[in-house]
Design a protein around this nucleic acid. Structure first.
Length: 486
RNA sequence: GCUGCUAUAGUGUAGUCCGGCCAAUCAUGCGGGCCUUUCACGCCCGCGACUGGGGUUCGAAUCCCCAUAGCAGCACCA
């Protein structure tokens, strides 16, 4: 008995169980293709992914492009790329603009079931009636009339704004948002980039149609959809379909990056941002560029879970997850910020062997040839510092004369350096160094690094005493790196 | 305003359904120490929370009520 109890305590589930998931699940991630994916999307994407991996089943990517105003033709590809980067087990991909005929068909059936009607009321007028819990005249039309009007909608008999299809719900529902919400509308402009159409389903209709058609069993989405879930239930009831299991997680506040697609686009167009992967943006491609690994993103999202309380996203937690992944694999190099060139007196040429990774000796070393002149960080040259240890090399004594420092060799003994509490600093041979700029979200850090860093293009490395960076570009002019985190 | 939802340390999270294993878990952060030729990693120690007030009960983080706060929705967006 006690064993059972303690076991219960030790069995920490990563995520809470989903009801009715024992025999596998069908879940979906359903983004609007208006831009690349950002951290907010990653939560839904990762949560669904984790459950599908836990229970087995299918993972449907459903591109929800039923509003031509909010479709960026380039986003289709970006979304797929971003999900690929995240490493999700997507099994099916559907695009709603390919499926308009299905929605039309189901709409006809729904009208035949008397679950929907074509409303030709002025929008303001309808809203007024709705708020008074009063049916608009269109609601009383016969099924036959509705079918005629529906056909008229589809055959350009109405112009934009002149007619819509509404779902019959409960006009006495205390929440006005529930009362006879729209299911289809006419949009003459803009043209849809993927399909010729002018009658488009609204999200609540197309989502129900697809969730049912695709056999979706569980839906995990943000709580901004709670009202939609209630609306969608009316459609399920009209058709007599089985309703999926829903989970709505709370709002996630994310500070420090730009997330609004329109704001990002604006900034890119006016040159404020370099592109969708500008590191000031919260897109997944920006995180990737900064050296955040997809596993870290997923782990951080799973740690947040599906709670329905509002939370604030913690960059610290993400960085911590990323460090766990990156630290064991990142090679170490010297970066000297704001370098000053100093001549060391009294030292013979030395060859320093510095480990590529301190806890993985098998990875080998890099060699730095000392021939007399080195670069060291400017911050290490100040009157209150009298001794330094050049890491993996030797000790240096600094003496000050009239405010001018001079540097002399002070032995190889590490013990001496320790005894003197000397800083162990990164350095570079003056004859073997390349310029290096580290771009951070706040600005840039200029310095120099080991030439060998050029072979780490695209990888995350650690500049000792500085932090992890991703090597973004290498060239004759030097190296550009993005600061990942400490 | 109307309709709902939520409320555990700086942050995230477990526990809340079925009240006692909870003087509240784990992670992160912060402070200190050890290790170390990085201010990294690892290890050890510490800091820090049940929104407030009533009620029910032998007993409440857990149930009920009120208050407060936050959030969501109230689009011919998703």
């Amino acid at each position: 008995m006690f064993a059972a109890l303690s076991e219960k305590h030790e069995h920490k589930k990563v995520l809470p169980d989903l009801e009715g998931a024992e025999n596998g699940v069908v879940m979906r991630f359903a983004p609007n293709p208006s831009g690349p994916l950002h951290i907010g999307h990653a939560r839904a994407a990762a949560l669904n992914d984790a459950y599908i991996k836990q229970y087995g089943g299918r993972y449907i990517l459903r591109i929800e492009d039923t509003d031509p105003k909010r479709v960026d033709p380039e986003a289709y590809e970006m979304v797929v790329e971003d999900l690929k980067w995240l490493g999700l087990a997507i099994t099916d991909t559907v695009t709603q603009s390919d499926r308009l005929h299905l929605y039309y068909l189901l709409c006809t059936q729904l009208i035949e079931r008397n679950g929907a009607y074509v409303c030709t009321c002025d929008n303001e007028q309808f809203k007024e009636l709705k708020n008074k819990k009063t049916a608009c005249p269109c609601r009383e039309q016969s099924v036959e009339t509705n079918l005629v009007l529906w056909d008229k909608m589809l055959t350009h008999g109405f112009k934009e704004g002149e007619a819509s299809v509404r779902i019959k719900t409960d006009l006495n529902n205390p929440d006005p948002a529930m009362r006879d919400f729209p299911a289809f509308r006419i949009l003459d402009v803009p043209a849809h980039p993927k399909v010729i159409a002018h009658v488009y389903p609204l999200m609540n209709f197309s989502v129900v149609a697809d969730d049912h058609l695709l056999g979706v069993t569980h839906v995990i989405r943000g709580k901004d959809h709670i009202a939609n879930t209630r609306r969608q239930r009316y459609i399920y009831d009209h058709f007599g379909w089985k309703v999926p299991v829903y989970r709505h997680y709370g709002r996630m506040g994310i500070e420090g990056v730009v997330l609004s697609t329109s704001q990002m686009r604006l900034g890119i167009n006016d040159g404020t941002y370099t592109g969708w992967d500008d590191i000031r943006l919260g897109t997944l491609r920006a995180l990737a560029r900064r050296g955040i690994s997809p596993e870290a993103v997923k782990n951080a999202m799973l740690a947040i879970g599906i709670g329905d309380t509002d939370i604030s996203f913690s960059w610290d937690n993400l960085y911590s997850e990323n460090k766990k992944i990156v630290d064991p694999v990142a090679n170490r190099y010297f970066f000297v910020p704001e370098p000053v060139t100093v001549q060391i007196e009294g030292a013979q040429p030395h060859t320093a062997h510095a480990m590529l990774h301190p806890s993985d000796t098998a990875r080998g070393t890099r060699t730095l040839e000392f021939t007399g002149t080195v670069l060291i960080p400017k911050s290490e040259v100040s009157p209150d510092i009298t001794m330094l240890r050049l890491k993996d090399l030797f000790n240096v004594k600094i003496s000050w004369d009239n405010g001018m420092p001079s540097f002399t060799y002070a032995g190889d003994s590490l013990a001496d350096a320790r005894a003197a509490k000397a800083h162990i600093v990164q350095w570079l041979p003056a004859q073997a160094t390349i310029p290096c700029t580290i771009l951070t979200q706040e600005g840039e850090m200029v310095g120099a690094c080991e030439p060998a860093v050029r072979s780490e293009l695209g990888k995350v490395i650690q500049f000792e005493r500085v932090g992890f960076v991703k090597i973004d570009a290498v060239g004759d002019a030097g190296v550009v790196a993005y600061y990942t985190h400490k």
